[in-house]
Computed example of a mutant assay.
Amino acid sequence: MTLGSAASGAAPGRLTDHEARQRLEHERESRLTQLQAIEAAGVGQQASDDLLASQRASTRSVLKEIDAAFERLAAGTYGSCQGCGRAIPAERLEILPYTRHCVGCRSSAG
């Protein structure tokens, strides 16, 4: 997916660079807040160590995906499926802005 410039607006069904960046920044902030809450919940907790560790690892993994999406945005490859190379629909990017795959490729990957 080629993203339109923020100044010229996006073509129908596409996100502008600015919109993509905003969505990614919002996701990053949400995940950082979530990680802080997990860390705070873990203070003095031993009964749920496995659950907290799993939540912490999952949140950190999503943060890495978000960072990778920022790299793709800078490289001009954001919005292109890494499986088939086709454009990822804007609707999918609005819901999951750090995704690397279209629904079809993600479904077939497992």
Rank of each mutant, 00 (worst) to 15 (best):
Q55L: 15
E94I: 08
G83Q: 09
Y98D: 02
Q22C: 07
I95T: 13
G9C: 07
Q82H: 07
C105H: 10
R14M: 10
R28I: 01
V62M: 09
A47C: 03
G110S: 13
A53H: 11
R31E: 14
G42F: 02
G83D: 06
G83I: 05
G85K: 11
K64S: 13
I38G: 02
R14P: 03
A69H: 10
L15P: 00
L96T: 05
E71N: 06
G42V: 01
Q45F: 02
G83F: 11
A74K: 15
G79C: 05
G9M: 08
A109T: 00
R86C: 03
I38S: 02
T33R: 14
R86L: 12
H18C: 08
L3W: 04
D67L: 10
A41S: 13
S58W: 07
L93H: 01
Q45N: 12
L3Q: 00
A57F: 10
Q45K: 07
Q22T: 12
T99G: 13
A20P: 03
S108V: 10
D49H: 11
L24Y: 01
Y78K: 01
A53K: 09
P97T: 09
G83T: 04
Q55M: 13
D67E: 15
A109N: 07
G79V: 15
C81V: 06
R23W: 07
G79Q: 04
L93P: 00
E27R: 12
R92F: 03
D49L: 07
A87F: 04
A40N: 09
I38L: 06
L93S: 02
Q22I: 00
R14Y: 05
S54R: 05
G13S: 09
R106S: 10
Q46T: 10
S58Q: 10
H26Q: 15
T77N: 09
R106W: 04
Y78P: 03
Q55P: 00
Q82K: 15
R21F: 12
L96S: 01
